[in-house]
Amino acid sequence: MSTLLDIQDLKIHFHTRDGVVKAVDGVSLKVEQGEIAGIVGESGSGKSVTAYSLLGLIPMPPGKIEGGRALFQGTDLLRLSEREINQFRGRKISMIFQDPMTSLNPYLRVSTQLTEPLAIHERLHGKPALHRAIEALEQVGIENAEKRIHSYPHEFSGGMRQRVMIAMALITKPDLLIADEPTTALDVTVQKQVLDVIRNLQKETGTAVIFITHDLAVVHEMCDSVNVLYAGRLIESAPTAELFHKPLHAYTRGLYKSNPGTHRKGEDLYSIPGLPPDLSRLPAGCSFRARNTLGDASLCLTDRQPELIEIQAGHFVQNCPGCLARHEAAVVS
């Protein structure tokens, strides 16, 4: 396995009236060829901004890439002009979004929307393009694709629409698919079907996937590796099995612990107190200090940002003694 995408020390800040919002503040992560890499975090953690920057989708201004690189097959995506990045968008890197209804044009037939990327990137038109489109719909498990391809988006249900989106994203056989909360708006049974489609296609085509979600359980079922983001920084990163076997950072542990599924009935849910910090007024030290109850907040760094260290082969974590510590009560339980 070789590295497909190497993000190094990415910094994206938004310059607003209220000050500089450090949406992404020094994130480094790698996506290997053909793997599903998960990015987990809450809203405001920087997970979507990180992904959007790869396709040049950050509005600038107010956004500004302050530093870092995103090497994709040797090319730094952050330094490309609008014209150059268009060579990657939809061809080598595709994206699917949370709400398929807003990302499909309601006035165009699915056939038109599916063949469009082929026309743009492969100059494939007419019958052959339509055949590829039908094939793509069949791949994502849409029955009677030959007929249904001529329908409009509103004639599909939510789950089916997301399948159409996936077919559209994968039709050019990209090397990387970015999936931004693709199942958050779907019902559980539909979510399962869509997740299965993504995983099966990923296995078949060898496309690497960046899977963005806030749901740890989905990450566990889908991803080969997990990156946990908090307040614009990478907190912990490890292969999935390793991370769930031995979560180290207090935030990762907190996320796991606050899941109702891990609690007995009537028992108080563990919850991470408070709110994520204001990204325009980040503390100088560990940004999780104020909410750290599973570690030892008194040991958290206050003077500098904790550095990411490789604590074990492949397992990276922010080296903050307070967040790595285990609260005694927690150890006993």
Binding site: V188, H220, H245, Y256, N259
Partner: peptide, 17 residues
């Protein structure tokens, strides 16, 4: 049963959390 089977599951963490 179908509904329950579709729910993504969290593994139980081996060590203390």
């Amino acid at each position: 049963r179908q509904l329950l089977a579709a729910v993504p599951k969290l593994p139980s963490v081996v060590g203390p959390v």
